[in-house]
Computed example of a mutant assay.
Amino acid sequence: MFVFLPVWLGAQVPVCNDFVQLSLDGNCEAFVLPDMVLEGSYPNFDDFTVRITRLDGTPVPNPVTGAYIGEPLQYKVTHEPTQNSCWGMLVVEDKLAPVLVCADATLPCHADPEPAWPAWHPNHPGGDAPFPEILENCTPLEDLTVNLVSEVVDDAQQCADPQPGDGSAGSVTIVRQWVAVDAAGNESALCTQTITIVRPENIDFPNDIVWTCEQSNAFPNVLDPTPLHPFITDTDPGTPQIIEVNLDPESDDDDGSLPFPPPNDTKDRPDINSTNIANGGNGSPGDTPPNNGLDDADVLELTGSGTPARIDGPYCQYGYVHFDVVTNTCTGAQGLIKITRTWTVLDWCTG
């Protein structure tokens, strides 16, 4: 009696594909498995191992990462039970395009409608409109090309007020389309974003404000019809329509201690103390080492007494003028100066 046992000999002589294109996944890597590179079928792919090297023989980790995109690599498949093997070439490719996620937004008309470009973008910092979220597997964000391919402004409703009393006196819509291209040339689908710019229905006029004669004598600009610095606060909440200014005496960073020759080694140098980070300011008052905070005199140097708020902007369609009546003047550090300032706001939508 003869018993025939099937013997599979193919595993002893593996056959490799000569050239394999390896596409990276969403994590910018790809694990090379035997069934991806062998020709034909085999009973048990677990009997095979894959080894990858550069052309000079330097080992390449498996999974392969985006560090090898475009570089020709050599792979070797070994049938472990017999130690038979074959070779082939592979090249790593990134075929996944970036994905853009665009968020719509509603902005007040005094906001800057330009995109808020991220720190890595050459147009940084930009304005207040949101920049698209980017999902990309291999290319660093700073190496992506992100283009605003179209922008359509619709101002047909800029002066429309369909619901008086709702706070809006009209709106403008800006429809933007974005596209991103990664380092491999993969282009995202178009991403559409709608920005709505709203005109205010009610005008926020500046509150009355009380300055000391000492402050106004040293810094006459505090009486100007210019914006009130955000660090000016009201010290008497009991009179909400009047701002009583009493700056913090501890807010003194004493620039005089810095080693500058006279006459520059005095306190309150605007080139040192500034809300501009580039000039050394950190945007907050107080004694902040190393002498780069805003102190009281810096704030006084940068402020006026206020203007109508939140109506300056390209889509606001408001203008304003003022008229002053001065009834008293300061004498030295004492006395009283009183300015009655009348504001007139013009709505160009209504004439």
Rank of each mutant, 00 (worst) to 15 (best):
C102P: 12
Q157W: 12
V91K: 02
A111M: 07
G127C: 02
V92I: 15
P61T: 12
V92R: 04
G165L: 10
T106Y: 04
L135Q: 15
E71N: 00
G70F: 10
L141K: 11
E133H: 14
M89F: 12
S150T: 14
T65V: 09
G88N: 07
H110K: 12
L90D: 09
A103C: 04
C109F: 10
V146C: 04
Q74D: 06
S85P: 06
V77E: 00
P162W: 11
G126V: 05
T78M: 00
P113I: 01
A160K: 12
K95P: 04
W120E: 06
P81N: 10
G70C: 07
L90K: 04
P125A: 03
P72K: 00
L135D: 02
C102F: 04
L135H: 10
E93A: 10
N147E: 15
S168G: 11
D94T: 13
A67V: 09
H110E: 11
Q83K: 15
S168R: 04
V77I: 10
N123E: 13
G70V: 05
V92Y: 03
H124D: 07
E151A: 09
V152I: 15
V149D: 08
L100D: 06
T145P: 04
V149G: 03
I69Y: 08
E93I: 14
T65Y: 07
F131H: 01
A97S: 07
P113W: 00
P115M: 06
D104R: 06
T139S: 09
P162C: 15
V146I: 14
W120F: 05
N62L: 14
P122D: 07
A116D: 13
P98R: 11
T106S: 01
V99M: 01
L144D: 12
I134E: 11
V146K: 03
W120D: 02
A116N: 15
D104E: 02
W87H: 10
G88L: 02
P72S: 01
Q83M: 15
Q83R: 14
G88A: 00
H110W: 11
D161G: 01
C102Y: 05
V153S: 01
N137P: 09
P164I: 08
Q163S: 14
N123P: 06
I134K: 05
W87Y: 14
I134R: 08
D104S: 13
M89P: 04
N147L: 14
Q157V: 06
N62Y: 13
V172F: 00
G165E: 05
E142Y: 10
D94F: 09
A97C: 09
A97W: 08
Q74H: 08
D161K: 15
Q83F: 12
T145H: 13
V152N: 02
E133W: 05
V64F: 05
A156F: 01
Y75D: 07
V172E: 01
L90V: 09
W117A: 00
T145D: 08
